[in-house]
Amino acid sequence: MFVLPVDNELYLRIAEEKDAEELFKLIDRSRESLREWLPWIDRTIRKEDTITFIQFSQKGFAEFTSMNLVILYREKIVGVAGFNEMDVENKVLSIGYWLGQCYQGNGIMNRVVRLLADFALNHLHFNRIEIRIAVGNKKSQAIPEKLGFKKEGVLRETEWLYDHYVDHIVYSLLASDNLE
């Protein structure tokens, strides 16, 4: 099983079908806060929907096209983070993440994204990492900004969020940049 340790209380690993119940309950408990920025919440209404996501994640991992991992904090699943897309030919990948509502504000995601960026640049030898975040999502924007990602610009109306389009800020980190 693929595991990425962050520190003594936090690690990432590939999701397994046995995680579906715990992951679904976390989504369900955080549904209101996650729905503000994540377009898939309304399509995740049963444990079986979470199993489908886990199977999709395992397939992407096996094909080296994505790497979505569950975040475990003190042995509890608290969210998901990883590489949503991996362009091996161009050495470019994108990081995505979400955290259950009751685990936000404790620095967990800063530690996770720092590890993912380091792993992408120094172990997988990618050249460019992107993070795209909706313009109004200040909590998520704080993470790449704190870690030294460069704000490149805004993609207008790039994501349909339930009943409206949202703009995304594009952040990037290159292998030649310094991760803070």
Rank of each mutant, 00 (worst) to 15 (best):
D163V: 00
P39G: 11
R132L: 14
F119H: 15
I45Q: 15
L12C: 07
L179G: 10
W40P: 12
L10Q: 07
L12N: 04
E36R: 11
S30Q: 09
N8R: 12
K18S: 15
E159Y: 10
L115R: 14
R156D: 09
N8E: 15
L72F: 07
A117Q: 02
V6H: 05
L116P: 02
A117L: 03
A134I: 10
D177F: 01
V70H: 08
A142I: 01
E75M: 04
G136T: 09
A20G: 12
M67W: 07
G153A: 06
Y97T: 01
R156S: 13
I143L: 05
L4T: 01
E16A: 12
I133K: 05
I54L: 08
P144W: 04
S172I: 00
W160S: 12
Y103D: 08
L34I: 04
F53A: 14
H164E: 12
M86W: 00
A142V: 00
I143S: 08
L174V: 01
G153I: 10
L99P: 03
L4N: 03
S33E: 15
G107H: 03
E157A: 15
I108A: 01
E48Y: 09
D7G: 07
E48M: 09
N127A: 05
K146P: 08
E22G: 09
I45R: 14
K59Y: 12
L121R: 06
E22Q: 14
V166Y: 01
I54P: 05
G79F: 03
C102I: 11
Y171L: 01
Y171W: 04
S94K: 07
L26W: 01
E48F: 06
G79H: 05
A142S: 15
G60M: 09
W160F: 15
E9T: 13
V113H: 08
F64C: 09
Y73V: 00
K76D: 13
K139T: 10
Y97L: 01
N106K: 14
S57G: 13
P39Q: 04
V135Y: 13
R156G: 13
H123S: 15
I71C: 01
S57V: 03
L161W: 07
H164T: 13
A20S: 14
I108H: 02
W160G: 11
K150E: 13
V80R: 08
R29N: 14
L26E: 07
V70L: 10
E9I: 09
G105E: 07
L23C: 09
Q104W: 00
K138T: 15
N84C: 08
Q55K: 15
S176C: 06
E85N: 11
L34N: 08
D49H: 14
T50R: 03
E21C: 11
L124P: 06
L10A: 10
E89H: 09
L99H: 04
M109F: 06
M67V: 03
A62M: 10
T52G: 08
F61V: 07
K151H: 11
V113L: 04
E17D: 15
N137K: 03
V78Q: 00
E63P: 00
K146D: 06
V112C: 04
I95F: 07
F24S: 02
D163P: 02
I27N: 01
V88C: 07
L161V: 10
A175K: 12
W160T: 10
Q55F: 05
F149H: 07
